[in-house]
Amino acid sequence: MADNTLRFELVAPERLLASEEVDMVVLPGSEGDFGVLPQHAPFLSLLRPGVIGIYRGDKLERRIFVAGGFAEVNGQGCIVLGEAAEPVDELDAEKARQALRNAEEDLADAKEPSESERERLERAIRVAQARLEAAEAA
């Protein structure tokens, strides 16, 4: 590995989405966004639904939305196990709004949801909200 670039991999359950040398990535950690530069200390974090920013040089090169997942930083680079990853410019604000409405209705319609059921629905809403924010910001 080159010392001044970072090996970044984004993997979804279905396929490998990105595997490249970059200068910096900014990840939506569950406790707040964090940036990863080359030579970062080993680190494991949960991700919340949000946007991954990939930087080359000082420029933001690509933005990818993830619905959650895990990030691992180690000596070999930075690996993100992401769920439902989509490039931000392919997000559709209108669709995202619809998805959010659906998710909210699902929760409202659920009669006496069990705890796990409620958790799942609330999670769906959080994902939909984050997707909408990402789509509108783009």
Partner: peptide
Amino acid sequence: EGGALYEFEPSEERILDE
């Protein structure tokens, strides 16, 4: 590589739970 030296956020247990 020294895998035991990982930092965890939020915590090791929470990550494992997920």
